[in-house]
Design a protein around this nucleic acid. Structure first.
Lengths: 255, 255
DNA sequence: GCGTGTATGTTTGTCGACAATCAGCAGAAA
DNA sequence: TTTCTGCTGATTGTCGACAAACATACACGC
């Protein structure tokens, strides 16, 4: 359906944005890493994947370098590419970066005082609350990451949003890398609610503190510190489907 | 010279790190963008550059995709790659991201209470003070960015350091993109000193506030807001060398 | 049996070549 | 003169092919 009339003075046409083949492949790869279709630590066999995608090795390798830059793939000369593993000792590094991005996003969000932007965060939070009622680990995990991403996106800063989209996948990789398999917390924590409360109250410092506490908690749980201290939290693990073989779909240049 | 004895229990050997050809090319390209050897907005002609580097187009294109992911190069299908331009209207976005990274790095640095790490920041600041005594715009600009990078690096977070290394180049690109040419401030601002003072005092909130103020100031100066308000700051511009043709050196696999 | 050295199949890294696409220019029509 | 159309040279995007490097398995010697 055609758009309604544009405001006067606005350019009649926006510059068309055509995604390149490399763009499409990179997105496909990122999705595969996020969904676990490409398992943690597994090598990327280029001929196989390029055939599945219906392209040659060259654009695939170019797209892969984007994920290398993001840290989602690691390259070892002579051995090719592997899906990155986020071991336990690197969790603090990852979550500290998330704290940096998410706390400042919250500050921007509050400073902007944009009701529409906050609404989207609230919606994402409501979906998380809904997801926790179920027992599907992946659904809960997705909803949690969606919420945190929505928070950063609502700040409206392109760079922070880009950083966060990578951090989301890295966090997922960390979950996959866990020796206990993919396990998520099946509850809304007080720190979670504190974030929302502070956002709605417009208290930037409180929001930042709540986010930092929330992510520090998450780090502690994933590194097993809580278990060491005898603290138990309600979690739910993903039941692995045996023999499920993931295959990448062909990219369609003319969708 | 062989290293001294390693601590007991540590692995006898570290995994050797061999940079790939793509790594070397990407570094070379990044340096060329940072130094202005590849001018803002200029197209990357692949045959020419690959010849200068002594490689074929394939590894060059792969390396270029890393810079695309960083936002240092932009790709338009059918038109190839260009050095990204950071126009004035995108400056707030860039500097807001810097605030996010740098303020949190300062918080980490203070929290760690690592005297050795702080020393390096102090050293970088001293070099900036020294640079400002001269009149070479590029020397001052380098020293300023080095200082900010040293601050983030001192926090010891790999991801934040990686983000910052890109942000540094993007900031340089913003300077190059300015319609007034490459201009830097020839003075140490009070907000600059306030950062150092807060770091040395171990006051995290004050450091964060000083960094935010400092970078907001920088945004205002670069967007020309200060000039509009009739506020003048002492600056020094780079005298462009006419006819200077930059050429990328061949990468050496066995240095 | 343990460790070393060798052979083999596979995968990567790199290259040159081809077709599709684009920017710039000349020429024709209004 | 101005505007539009079609051409041309150059550059990109993609592909298949080759050589080098690697992981694995096997045979040999101690």
């Amino acid at each position: 359906m055609p758009q309604n009339s544009a405001p006067a003075g606005a350019p009649a046409f926006l510059r068309v944005h055509r995604p390149s083949t490399v763009d499409l492949i990179a997105t496909e790869l990122r999705n595969a890493v996020y969904s676990g279709g490409l398992p943690v630590g597994s090598p990327l066999r280029e001929v196989e994947i390029s055939r599945q995608l219906g392209v040659s090795r060259s654009p695939l390798r170019e797209a892969a370098q984007r994920l290398v830059q993001e840290g989602l793939l690691t390259a070892i000369p002579g051995q090719g590419l592997r899906v990155a593993t986020v071991s336990e000792d690197r969790l603090p590094d990852l979550f500290e970066a998330r704290i940096a991005i998410e706390t400042h996003a919250a500050r921007i969000l509050i400073r902007n005082n944009d009701a529409g932007a906050l609404t989207k965060v609230t919606a994402a939070f409501d979906q998380l609350v809904e997801a926790v009622k179920g027992t599907d680990a992946r659904t809960i995990g997705d909803a949690d990451l969606d919420f945190h991403f929505a928070l950063v996106e609502a700040a409206g800063n392109g760079r922070l949003t880009r950083y966060m989209s990578t951090l989301v996948v890295e966090t997922r990789l960390a979950s996959f890398s866990s020796k206990d398999g993919y396990v998520v917390r099946r509850e809304i924590t007080p720190s979670h609610r504190a974030i929302m409360a502070a956002l709605e109250a417009g208290d930037a410092d409180a929001a930042a503190a709540a986010i930092a506490e929330h992510l520090t908690e998450a780090t502690a749980r994933m590194t097993g510190e809580l278990a060491e201290q005898g603290i138990k939290v309600e979690t739910v693990a993903e039941v692995p489907e045996p023999g499920a073989v993931y295959e990448l779909g062909p990219i369609d240049q003319n969708p």
